[in-house]
Amino acid sequence: MSQISSAQPLPLKRSWFLRQRYLLLRRGTQFSFLGLFLIGPWYGYWVLKGNLASSIFLDSFAFTDPYIYLQSIVGGHDMGRVATIGALTILVFYLVVGGRAYCSWVCPINVVSDAAFWLRTTLGLSHSWQPKKNIRLWLLMMTLIVSVMTSSIAWEVVNPITMLQRGLVFGMGVAWAIVLAVFLFDLLVSRRGWCSHICPVGAFYGLLGKASLVRVSAINRQACTDCGDCFRVCPEPHVITDPLLGEEKGIQPLILSGDCTNCGRCIDVCEDEVFHFATRFERHLRKTKGG
């Protein structure tokens, strides 16, 4: 990996801002979401009340996490009308913006696991245990079975995402221990282990992503110089392979895998501007723009 980067010191054609724009936007969005939940308890302006599990926007629109909703339903509880509307709203929202856009644009654990990944790369820690890609789907199924058997919302007992977010908005307790565990797991045990292999919340949103509208496309793939930058930054590099390199096999350039988090980091780092956001219906290639 590191060999490739040192072998090709390409001159950077684009400004620093262009090379970081989606990363900056994502961090902005992640912290804004937290901020919107926090200005209520801190300053008394209630924009978003509640937390990621369920919330009320401006005292009028309800949002409910559809995965938590699903666990409650299979656990045998009739959710109220408000939660049902809220869960449908969020479901439709992520069917539009991309299922795992939740992971990269909203989830606060993403900041933790990105930090662990950055530190792991900086320290040059290469040893990593890689659990199977589909283990998170098994875990997702498991949480639903446990919910049925214990008639509870099984994953919420340990879910680091809601632990952290609820902790920040309502009071942390020792929830930082779970967050630290995720950080250490990603840093020392498994490269991008939590978000890309384990987390059943990501697996759930990944299933939505299989049908979602907004997708990243290697729409300009003729311009690709095989530098490998996109593969290095992508949290789910396997999603890039076919759309980017499948020209001869007649594979269209859209990244349709639900695993893609629509983080846009590949768009950031690609000096040849191969990647762009597109809708899942734009299956054509774009004419190369000079470069």
């Binding site: 209520g40 308890p41 209630w46 009340k49 509640g50 937390n51 599990a53 369920s54 919330s55 009320i56 409910t64 996490d65 938590i68 909703y69 409650s72 939660a83 919302i153 919420e156 809601t162 632990m163 609820r166 902790g167 908005v169 309502f170 009071g171 942390m172 307790g173 020792v174 929830a175 221990a177 779970i178």
Partner: peptide, 21 residues
């Protein structure tokens, strides 16, 4: 679902959400 909306709407700060631990 542990959303805390009841806690927020309690005018007397009676309610709290249990913290991890």
């Amino acid at each position: 679902v542990r959303c805390g909306l009841c806690v927020r709407d309690c005018p007397y700060d009676t309610l709290s959400l249990a913290e991890f631990g």
